[in-house]
């Protein structure tokens, strides 16, 4: 169980980005984390994987535990070795290295298994096997996303933190990525999925959190979130405009958009 308790994160000593966030990622599940731009989703992931330092962020309160052991003071190197691995937003593949080199770098914290993990990744992403000797920069967007996920998986992490894997991909590709996430999860990796594409995320998640301006405002099973009227309106865009009697009813911005606080 990967757990955040009352987490408070401050950037540059002044910007309070997370204001007491608690989140539980039970082993073996897919947990979705939704929220608008700037809600703090990526910050939460950075806190979990220890990458806040790079961005001048600090955990000022609260704790993160992995199976009960606190890890919020640990270095990213240590956290990766413990089996929590993040695939960064925007894919961030190393464009000038080959596909295989990218993958091998992902296996840095588990040097013994690199060979069999490479085979495992090529099994999971057959496209990557075809292009293993090419510069990673020449892959298509979807292939780059696969490479980014594959790279994170190379060290056999127990927890995989995915930051917007559907970002900038065609709908077909998004479906493919979604199926892959299910497959990865079925193979025993717990997934924390950060998404703007709420439909996609909730369709595969067991549990979902909605984050808004640094606070968790909803914490429900994915099915309940899917049925929730507010989520349907604000994240799924499903409140039919056709049913609206007057133009006033469609003006989202005039309506309640905050559940707590």
């Amino acid at each position: 169980m990967l757990e955040a308790n009352n987490l408070e994160v401050v950037y540059d000593d002044v910007m309070l980005v997370l204001r007491g966030v608690s989140l539980r990622v039970p082993e073996g599940r897919i947990v979705a984390l939704l929220g608008a731009n700037g809600a703090g989703k990526t910050t939460l992931l950075r806190a979990l994987s220890g990458l806040l330092d790079v961005h001048d962020g600090k955990i000022t309160r609260g704790r993160i535990t992995l199976d009960g052991e606190p890890i919020h003071r640990a270095s990213p190197t240590r956290i990766a070795t413990l089996g929590v691995k993040q695939a960064l937003e925007g894919r961030r593949i190393l464009a000038e290295l080959t596909v295989e080199e990218n993958l091998r770098i992902g296996g840095h914290s588990r040097p013994r298994g690199i060979k069999q993990n490479l085979d495992r990744m090529y099994e999971l992403f057959p496209r990557l096997r075809e292009r293993r000797r090419q510069s990673a920069g020449y892959l298509s967007g979807g292939e780059q996303q696969m490479l980014s996920i594959g790279r994170a998986l190379m060290s056999e992490p127990r927890y995989l933190l995915l930051d917007e894997p559907s970002l900038g991909l065609a709908p077909l590709m998004v479906q493919q990525i979604r199926d892959l996430i299910v497959k990865i999860n079925a193979a025993g990796t717990t997934v924390l999925l950060v998404e703007q594409n709420a439909t996609m995320a909730l369709s595969i998640a067991d549990h979902g959190y909605v984050l808004e301006t640094g606070k968790v405002v909803m914490d429900k099973p994915a099915a309940a979130l899917l049925a929730d009227e507010d989520v349907r309106e604000f994240y799924l865009g499903l409140r039919g405009e056709a049913t609206a009697q007057s133009f006033r009813d469609v003006k989202h911005y005039k309506r309640r958009k905050r559940w707590l606080s």
Partner: peptide
């Protein structure tokens, strides 16, 4: 090439 990526891989 990318320090943050390297850190995320446990380097």
């Amino acid at each position: 090439y990318d320090q943050e990526v390297a850190l995320a891989q446990g380097i």
